[in-house]
Design a protein around this nucleic acid. Structure first.
Length: 265
DNA sequence: GCCAACGTTGGC
DNA sequence: GCCAACGTTGGC
């Protein structure tokens, strides 16, 4: 079984007139969701490698408090991302069609929220230890744990929205998420980390990575308010729309047309 | 909102 | 195939 990390944006964002927001609350309410909208070749190729049962870290990206919010699993292996040929979809890609799908997605099923939100700030703080000696508050991860974190793509390859997570890193994250023990630097309301275990997830969403538009039923935020401590919530103004990434794939399929990003010069 | 890092485009 | 210019990601 392999492990992965997939990014989603917890904050609203309008793309082509639609809010592609998708929160963990939504994820939780729908249980299983297609991870549509990935328009990056490397990320797509990684999704094609995923097997049913593989475990996935659900990551909050591009928000005030980025980090790992939940655990999920691959419930359906790669299949064509039909949103690519839906012209009304935010991530419509005019260059592909059903005859030759270029983009793929998998289905993910939420397994559990992280009891303790594992923030990027924490992971970076751990990774910053020159000696690989773990910080005192998370000393239970040991030196090996520090080394595993240092090697995470999340730390050294920031822009990849779908990444492989090595087994050691996976177990360190699991340990952190279930044990806690550090001061959550990102918490705004003064909540501590030790006592509450639900501080983790709040809303997750995907955007640059997965565009989850369809399923939102309107009130995602309201949904699981119960377990969501406010600290984790982020509210940023929505960003301008159309910013999605659409990297072309270089790898496998040949793509006849590529959108030129630099045409506007 | 700013801007660093990094991926991609596309001229040569 | 190299690499400069330019876009985008995404943390801060």
């Amino acid at each position: 079984m392999k492990h992965w990390l997939m990014k989603a944006e917890p904050e609203s964002r309008i793309v082509k007139g639609k809010d592609v927001k998708f929160s963990v609350d939504d994820f939780e309410s729908m249980k299983t969701t297609p991870w549509e909208g990935v328009r990056n070749a490397e990320a797509r190729n990684l999704m094609k490698e995923m097997q049913a049962g593989d475990r996935v870290l659900f990551y909050h990206s591009n928000c005030k408090n980025p980090g790992i919010a939940a655990f999920a699993e691959v419930s359906k292996e790669a299949y064509p991302d039909y949103t690519a040929w839906d012209s009304s979809h935010p991530y419509y890609d005019e260059k592909t069609d059903q005859e030759k799908p270029k983009w793929y997605m998998v289905d993910l099923t939420l397994k559990a929220r992280a009891e303790h939100f594992v923030s990027l700030a924490l992971l970076k703080r751990i990774a910053a230890s020159p000696s690989s000696e773990p910080p005192a508050d998370v000393e239970y991860i040991g030196e090996e744990g520090v080394k595993a974190i240092k090697e995470m793509a999340l730390i050294n390859r920031g822009r990849l929205s779908v990444q492989r997570v090595e087994d050691e890193a996976w177990s360190v994250i699991e340990k952190l998420a279930s044990t806690g023990g550090w001061e959550d630097e990102a918490v705004k309301k003064g909540k501590k980390s030790g006592s509450d275990k639900s501080n983790a997830v709040k809303k997750g969403q995907s955007s640059g990575m997965k565009a989850k538009t369809a399923t939102k039923n309107g009130g995602e935020d309201s949904g699981v308010a119960g377990d969501i401590p406010d600290e984790a919530r982020e509210d940023k103004p929505k960003k301008p729309a159309a910013k999605k990434r659409k990297a072309e794939d270089e790898t496998s399929e040949a793509q006849p047309l590529r959108r030129s990003t630099r045409t506007r010069k």
